[in-house]
Lab assay of single mutants.
Amino acid sequence: HNGKLCKLKGIAPLQLGKCNITGWLLGNPECDSLLPARSWSYIVETPNSENGACYPGDLIDYEELREQLSSVSSLERFEIFPKESSWPNHTFNGVTVSCSHRGKSSFYRNLLWLTKKGDSYPKLTNSYVNNKGKEVLVLWGVHHPSSSDEQQSLYSNGNAYVSVASSNYNRRFTPEIAARPKVRDQHGRMNYYWTLLEPGDTIIFEATGNLIAPWYAFALSRGFESGIITSNASMHECNTKCQTPQGAINSNLPFQNIHPVTIGECPKYVRSTKLRMVTGLRNIPSIQYRGLFGAIAGFIEGGWTGMIDGWYGYHHQNEQGSGYAADQKSTQNAINGITNKVNSVIEKMNTQFTAVGKEFNNLEKRMENLNKKVDDGFLDIWTYNAELLVLLENERTLDFHDLNVKNLYEKVKSQLKNNAKEIGNGCFEFYHKCDNECMESVRNGTYDYPKYSEESKLNREKIDGVKLESMGVYQILAIYSTVASSLVLLVSLGAISFWMCSNGSLQCRICI
């Protein structure tokens, strides 16, 4: 991952900044910058967002509201009850120091605090018919004063009620008058409520006091790749198909172990950190130390980045220098085999997901714990399936590479015959000098055995068991695999060879 928040398929997220979902939807004055928000790819909250409900109280069923919003990608904020005409018999300019803005008392931008007009609070009834052709999110509140005197001074009615009804919602609220500790300079409380109004449905408000009335509502448009994440990451000019709280993932790998919460087309989250597919040879310690064997393909974004291909070729060293050249036929066979294998694994496992966190309130801790156990169970199954699949494929890959290298080895052996000696570690020792032209003939299969047989015969008789390297004779190393990324691999195959001279070296080696 890149540690950044990015656009998702070209669409920017909605960053709530210092506000949370509650503050944004109710219209906390400190969240005025969010009022123009219309569309987004996903919503970003920060872990310690401080601006929620400015007048103390709870947004009821907040967790369910977050779940609903996680599939919303755009909205239209509109005046559901026009301020100047909807409440002619009531005062609608209630403000509070708890919702101060720029040093002055204020109130929510989407709600109206209705109080008595003169000395009376006549029963009010108002309704709205949803003609938007889509779901409408309606929010309101109920004020709970701290004393009967406060109730009387604001609403005149000691036994007030609030009723809200639609086809799918029907509740009646009565204020709970009680002494409470002071929070944000208030002994009173406000509880906030919401409902989704279906197209064509009607919502009716009736009250004799204590109503925090809707002013603006939201017509919602769903987008199934949307979601809500909690993150401290910063926004950058970048684009992605998959976003996590820790950063964007741009990967076609089937798995990731970065974060379980994802938005967009994302690899499946697994616990494993070692889900690797081999593309090189079986481990040979001396070669492995030099980083030549054991190439791997990573299938977990965050564990290993991208696929690494092994390729086969020849390396030689003689009086004229040293050089490398790919054996294109065996390399292409290996590439085709690995590509098919990788595609097979991805096809089997690479279903892209959006995974969002589930919200539970403080009273639902047991449910949250149960949900976590269920999620953990599914996660263990996914991890096991992934590891088992790759384990089985790896064994076949190792066998496949062994065969490829063996074929190259036999190709060289059949040409050199007794003009060189096998020394048991995949290397041959020449009994004759071999210049670049000679080396090329070994690589392309045109090695002239009779041409060098007499010199080889004489050297075999002279050496008589002495280690060949100390006599200045020449080696050919018969097994060799270097490691390159897919891009470098293609470039390498396009070149005939490249040279690395070893000044004054008397050794001649050709490596497979």
Rank of each mutant, 00 (worst) to 15 (best):
N232C: 01
E237L: 11
G247C: 00
A248V: 08
I249D: 03
I249G: 01
N250F: 13
N250D: 13
N257S: 11
P260G: 06
P260W: 14
V261C: 01
E265P: 00
C266K: 06
P267N: 02
K268L: 13
V270L: 15
L275Y: 08
I284W: 00
P285Y: 15
Q288E: 15
R290E: 00
F293W: 09
G294K: 12
A295E: 03
A295F: 05
I296Q: 01
A297G: 11
G302V: 03
G302L: 01
G302I: 04
G303C: 04
D309E: 12
H315I: 01
Q320L: 13
Q320Y: 14
G323F: 12
Q328G: 00
K329H: 10
S330D: 00
Q332S: 11
Q332A: 15
A334L: 06
I335K: 00
S344L: 05
Q352A: 13
F353M: 15
G357S: 15
N362M: 10
N362D: 12
M367K: 09
E368W: 04
L370C: 08
N371T: 07
N371G: 07
D376I: 04
D376G: 09
F378T: 02
I381F: 15
T383V: 03
T383F: 08
L388Y: 05
L392W: 13
E393R: 07
E393M: 09
V405F: 03
K413G: 10
S414E: 12
K417H: 10
E422W: 06
I423K: 11
G424H: 10
G426P: 02
C427F: 11
F430N: 06
D435Q: 05
N436E: 02
E437F: 02
R443M: 12
Y447M: 12
S453A: 08
E454R: 13
E454M: 03
L458M: 13
N459T: 10
K462R: 11
V466I: 15
K467T: 09
S470C: 01
M471R: 07
Y474V: 14
I476F: 15
L477M: 09
L489Q: 11
L489M: 15
V491I: 05
L493D: 00
Q507D: 03
Q507E: 08
C511M: 11
